[in-house]
Every structure is written in structure tokens, then in C-alpha cells.
Amino acid sequence: MENHLVISAFISEAKPMRYTPAGLPALDMRIEHVSRMTESGQERDVKVDIKAVAIGSVAERLAGQEIGSQWRFTGFLASPRSARTVVFHVQDFQQV
């Protein structure tokens, strides 16, 4: 099985840096994707707001980026313990 997500989005919210129990930097944020896609031959506007987290050196690099800046994010999806929500774990990012 594979769990890999690549999405172009902008940073819509970033919380202050925190640290995991293991002492790693962690950045909780929200990213937003807006596009126009074709589905079943029909054009549709797509907008999605995604809860995301970055850990370690990726968190440190992302912490300095401006709200509204656009990036190409890569990572994987996971659910926090005892939750039904999905969180995008950012493993890398590049400027669009």
C-alpha cells in the first residue's frame, strides 16, 4: 500500500512552534488548495482546507514562511490517536 500526497497549496494559518515529547520541533498549520478540475467531463471549482503538521527540520524551515505563501507540499495522511480526522504530515515542500 502507498500513502503519498502531493498538493499545491498556500499556508492559511500557522500556530507557534511547539515541541514533541521527544524534543522535536513541530508546527501545526492549515493549508488551502484552490483549483479548477474536470470530473466526468464537467468543470468544477475545488477548494479544500487541510489540517497539516510538520516535524523536525521541515517544521523549522516552514516556521519562517509567510501566511499566504504558495508551496508544493509532499507527505502522507494520518489520523491522530483516537480521532476520526485526517492530518497531512508534511515531509517536504518547494516553492511553486
Rank of each mutant, 00 (worst) to 15 (best):
R84H: 13
R36P: 01
P21F: 02
P16A: 04
P21R: 04
E60N: 00
I31K: 03
V34S: 12
V90S: 12
S8N: 11
V90C: 13
R44I: 02
L77G: 05
F93H: 11
A78N: 04
T85S: 15
K15Y: 09
L24V: 06
S8P: 09
T85P: 12
A9D: 04
E39G: 10
I55A: 10
L27A: 08
V90G: 12
R18H: 11
S8A: 11
E13P: 00
S79R: 06
H4N: 06
D49Y: 09
S82C: 12
T74G: 06
Y19F: 15
K51I: 07
V86I: 14
L24R: 09
I11K: 01
F10M: 09
R81Q: 14
A9P: 04
V46A: 10
E43P: 01
H4E: 04
R84Y: 07
F93T: 03
E2T: 14
V86T: 12
S82F: 13
D92Q: 12
L24P: 05
S8I: 12
R30Y: 03
A78E: 05
F76G: 00
G64V: 02
I31T: 02
V34Q: 11
G75N: 12
Q95F: 10
G68A: 05
Q95P: 08
G68F: 02
L62K: 01
E13L: 01
G56P: 05
Y19M: 15
R81W: 08
S12E: 02
G41W: 08
L27F: 06
Y19A: 15
S40V: 09
Q94F: 13
H4D: 05
N3I: 11
Y19L: 15
D28Y: 08
D28T: 10
R61Y: 06
R61E: 12
G64A: 05
K15I: 03
G23I: 06
G41T: 06
T38E: 15
G75P: 07
